[in-house]
Simulated assay, not measured.
Amino acid sequence: MSAIRVVIADDSRVTRDVLRTILTRDGDVEIVGEATNGLEAIELARRLSPQLITMDLTMPVLDGLGAIEEIMHTKGVPILVVSDRSHAETAYQALELGALEVMPKPTLESDDAERLLERVRLLSGVAVITRLRRRSLAQPLATRPVAPQNSEMAPRGFQYIIAIACSTGGPQALARLLNRLPANFPAPIVIAQHISHGFIEGMAQWLASLCILPISVGKHGERLKPGHVYLSPSESNLCITPHHRFQLQASQAEALYHPSGDVLLKSVAEVYGADAIGLILTGMGRDGVSGMRAIHLGGGQTIAQDEESSVIYGMNQEAVNAGVIHHIVALDDLPGRLMRAVRCTTHRQMPL
């Protein structure tokens, strides 16, 4: 088998040395070029036709966002953003432009080093398409929903709840899905997106800039509100108590997935039974399958993103093969499906 052809784009020689050492240690990755700025990255992408580019965001001459936009508009290449955690929100803007995933800069001995190599192997085989020039996102026209004044007096405040598990390709899918839900959406949405530590707040801010619904990272003891989107932190697993509040559980040291989709979905199934709606999106692995089974057995509705619209048809395929999915739905049809599931009558779409 021929080696995976990779271009590294980073203005730091030290970082390039670290990335080169990690990626070439097993012999199945070949570094065919190194760029020190965005313009060089564009030229190497055109001339060398790599199977993947690792892209820093803060570079001279032209930054990583500019390089990603130009590459994806001229000759699409799988791009993995390798960025400092302090640039988390900017990193998620890169996904909007066409990058596949974001992860922190690794050290030679860190767990992120193995994850980087794993991600390069996986993403180098993803088919990407050359994009049209970016359109500006429509700005929300409606006001954000107002929380009930006497929420503590209400035992619940909503009928249905939506629980989502996703991994690789998930942020892009979530942006397209959540951007199309209206301000009067009546159900809380809880999400377990596999993510590197230190990036979840940036992802929440990025999604919030695109959507009408309020989006935040779930906090221990926080009460769920209808029409609010909550992301699980990566360092802990998010659960829901019978009092409709969040509980953060410590993640096991040997856990494969951070955070765990199964833990979140199982708690939703246990508390809400037939009023639970489970959704499993694009991603690698089997996380979420047991959680979707719990929702299915509890009488709730289960939905999986279809293969054609998935970056990685993995988690969702496993759930389909396990026989725990009621509906297989294309990404662009998911907003309408969820609207019908929670009996929301207003559907105002915004282009993304």
Rank of each mutant, 00 (worst) to 15 (best):
V32N: 06
Q317G: 10
I189H: 09
I200K: 12
E307Y: 04
A208D: 15
Q349M: 12
T74I: 04
H296S: 15
D112Y: 14
G198D: 10
L178C: 03
L281T: 03
R133N: 09
H194A: 08
H326E: 10
N316V: 05
L231N: 12
R134M: 06
A45G: 11
M292G: 03
F199N: 07
A147W: 04
A41M: 08
T345H: 15
N179L: 11
N150F: 03
T58M: 15
S290N: 13
I277C: 02
E222Y: 01
N237Y: 03
A138P: 09
D287W: 10
V82H: 08
Q51M: 10
D11A: 04
S216C: 05
M153W: 14
T302P: 07
M103S: 01
E118C: 00
R223L: 00
E270A: 14
H220C: 02
M55D: 05
R180L: 01
V14F: 14
I240K: 14
V342T: 08
S209A: 10
V289F: 08
R337Q: 08
E118K: 15
E34V: 04
I161R: 15
N321G: 01
P171D: 03
T241Q: 03
M72D: 09
A319D: 14
V18I: 15
V102Q: 06
H244S: 02
G33R: 09
L116H: 03
T345N: 12
D287N: 12
L181D: 09
M103C: 01
M350F: 11
M292H: 13
D26I: 00
Y160P: 02
V289Q: 13
S236I: 04
V6F: 06
H243A: 15
I200W: 05
L213R: 10
A3L: 12
V329L: 11
L248K: 01
E40Q: 14
L334E: 08
G298D: 02
R16K: 10
L279D: 06
L48W: 00
G300W: 08
C239R: 15
V263I: 15
H244Y: 10
I164M: 11
T130W: 05
E235V: 11
R135G: 02
V102A: 04
H327V: 06
E308W: 13
L174E: 03
G278M: 07
I162T: 04
Q205Y: 01
L224F: 06
E69W: 05
E222G: 03
